[in-house]
Amino acid sequence: MKLTPQQYKEILSAATHTLLFEENYLHIKNAIDQLHLLFAGVTGVHAGDITDEDIYLPGGIAVSTIKAAHCLRELERTRRFIRGINQAIGHLLNTMPGHTINILYAGCGPYATLLTPLTSRFNATKINFILMDINPDSLNAVKALYEQLGLSDYVIDYVCADATIYKFPHSMRIDMVISETMLNALRKEPQLAIMNNLTPQMHQEAIFIPENISVEAVLTQWEEEYRHFTIPDYQPKRIKSGLLYRASRQFKLPQPVVVQVPASETHNQLDLFTEITVFGEEVLTAYNCSLTMPLAVCKLENQQEGKSVTFEYVMSDNPGYTYIY
């Protein structure tokens, strides 16, 4: 049975309330399942087996429509981003009273996952969107979703473009940019290329989501990491070796970094740890989701003394860190 726009909005509102305010993970999982059923039912794009292909760009890989749909189903990732964006919108509305917040969502995918739920919290006089994706299939899907759910009033434009070269409309003030186009340790996808293009175009009070991304070199030990998963609340012993990079609103491209890795008789695995601050207190840390899984660099066996490791971030069609030691 086809639902009415009002019934769609009731499902959306209930699921969004759970993501924003509940801590019970069963309830959160059920809410995300409800959103997936709703979005997939309207668009025909299901987060199932990957049958479509990525798009390869000069700045990195733009993931396929179905892969983009999959992002919804990472519980902690989805709820932290939605909570952070909800807070960021509230902040902008408080600091710019009477102003409609214009949001550019670069890489919106087929569901505009990080904004669509918030249409149940803010009406179209408060927030407007430019929904952008380089994949026309994703853009067609999200357009169908917004039309079916009766949300078209929120959308200024649907833009099929490469966010690494896109220019803001001259006649429009963009107050927030959302781009969650990354993997752990900022590899393969064009997050930094997008930030390098878009952040200089933003006005001073505008917010970029995520607010902060950091990549750090850390020495780990397998047994300690294992205890983290098998012993409740266990904090694994790790040896921090140095910050490689921090990306924020005051954006700069990464520069080569020499990290002094200390000698250790116990910790011999050098990993890159990613931490993502969406906005305010909404933070994703190690193992919270695929974006913050530690990335193995190398084993440092028989390490009787410290080593210098040089890391360099390569901006290319396959971006990521290289290292020499």
Rank of each mutant, 00 (worst) to 15 (best):
G150M: 12
S138C: 03
G107F: 10
I127W: 08
N140Y: 10
Y154P: 04
L149W: 04
I127F: 07
Y105G: 03
A141T: 03
P136T: 10
C108H: 05
L115E: 13
R121H: 09
E147F: 11
T116K: 14
T119Y: 11
L151K: 12
L131T: 04
T125E: 11
G107A: 05
T116L: 05
I134W: 01
A144G: 10
N123Q: 00
V142E: 01
A124C: 13
T125G: 11
L149N: 02
S152V: 10
S152I: 10
A112W: 06
D153M: 13
N123S: 12
T125W: 03
F122A: 02
L118N: 08
P136W: 04
F129K: 07
T116M: 11
R121A: 00
D153C: 06
L104A: 14
I134T: 01
N128K: 15
T119W: 04
Y154E: 06
L104V: 07
Y111A: 02
A124Y: 13
T116Y: 12
T125N: 13
Y146C: 06
L115M: 15
P117Y: 15
N123M: 09
I130F: 11
R121L: 00
P117I: 11
K143M: 13
N140W: 07
L149F: 11
E147I: 00
C108R: 10
I103C: 02
S138R: 00
T116G: 00
E147T: 06
A106S: 12
L151C: 08
A106G: 07
A144L: 14
L145V: 00
P117R: 14
S152Q: 14
T119V: 06
Q148D: 13
T116P: 00
D153F: 09
S120M: 08
T119E: 11
K143H: 12
I134S: 10
V142A: 04
A141S: 15
I134V: 14
I127M: 13
L149V: 02
A141Y: 12
S120T: 08
S120D: 05
I130K: 09
C108F: 00
K143N: 11
Y154G: 03
L139C: 07
D153N: 15
I103L: 08
L115I: 15
K126W: 08
P136I: 01
M132H: 08
E147H: 14
A124I: 01
Y146N: 14
